[in-house]
Design a protein around this nucleic acid. Structure first.
Lengths: 150, 150
DNA sequence: GGTGAAAAGTCGCCCAT
DNA sequence: ATGGGCGACTTTTCACC
């Protein structure tokens, strides 16, 4: 990982449409070595993958909810069950275990506040081991990027 | 947006490596109409773009911090300044304005707890209008997907 | 809205340096 | 390690149903 590879990463993040040859050109490499560096970074796991981004609002998900969860018990089994259940819920797009007053923070996509009620009552509060849930609605998404400073 | 287009979206999300021809095959279309549908969804903004995902841990960002911010004042100008400043900080990968006890929640990437201190003192606490900051560290990222249920 | 062929362009991989 | 060249494959366009 030298400066050239970092420049390639920056370009790939900023302008994902660039072709390998174009990236090579901008970093002063012909397409073969540039391609090899990209493949190497993929193999190492630095580059995880390429994904498409869908605009949630365009398909009916107008609301993002942050949902702070405390568990009743903290034994290994409860944790694993909870985590498995969360991963299986497609509306939950992010989930982190946390320090501080809450055990987990989730971000949940819903079409409306009303539908969030549903998800909360029917799914979130019924997740394995859940003791306490505190929800905050996102009024606006100011920033949501995958770009990592390199 | 009929069921066929939704199936295309699902495939694009689950298996981004698929070629247009393969996707067409799976949804019962030849490659041209499939391609036209994808382009249409891009033009409509349903498909925002294609991005590469870098593994933050692989480039030295081992810690995600959730940072809850309350502003001192809530006039238009303070808000806009704060939001502009947040967007300019590359370590801040997500920022939402919120209902509830905090005005904003940010997710911040750092290399260590120590470096977070730095960012907190030198940047976050100095953002325009910031009154109060409460930070929680992410112990583990259980889920972080861009997949939207369609 | 659908098909199929053909063009343009990119990638992936050989080899030489 | 880099650069050049070439075949294979994908995307994109086009003519037509």
């Amino acid at each position: 990982m030298d400066e050239t590879s970092r420049r390639i990463l920056r370009l790939l993040q900023k302008e994902p449409e660039l072709t390998v040859a174009e990236i090579g050109q901008r970093v002063g490499l012909s397409h073969t070595p540039c391609w090899r560096r990209i493949k190497e970074m993929e193999k190492l796991g630095i580059i995880r993958d390429r994904v498409i981004r869908i605009d949630p609002k365009m398909v009916g998900y107008d609301v993002s909810v942050f949902c702070f969860v405390r568990l009743k018990q903290h034994d290994e089994e409860t944790l694993l069950e909870f985590e498995r259940a969360v991963r299986a819920m497609p509306e939950v797009v992010q989930c982190y275990s946390m320090t501080g007053e809450h055990d987990y923070v989730l971000r949940v996509l819903t079409s409306s506040v009303r539908q969030y009620e549903e998800i909360l009552k029917k799914a979130l509060l019924k997740l394995p081991g859940v003791g306490f849930v505190n929800s905050s609605f996102a009024l606006d998404e100011l920033k949501n990027t995958l770009e990592v400073p390199v």
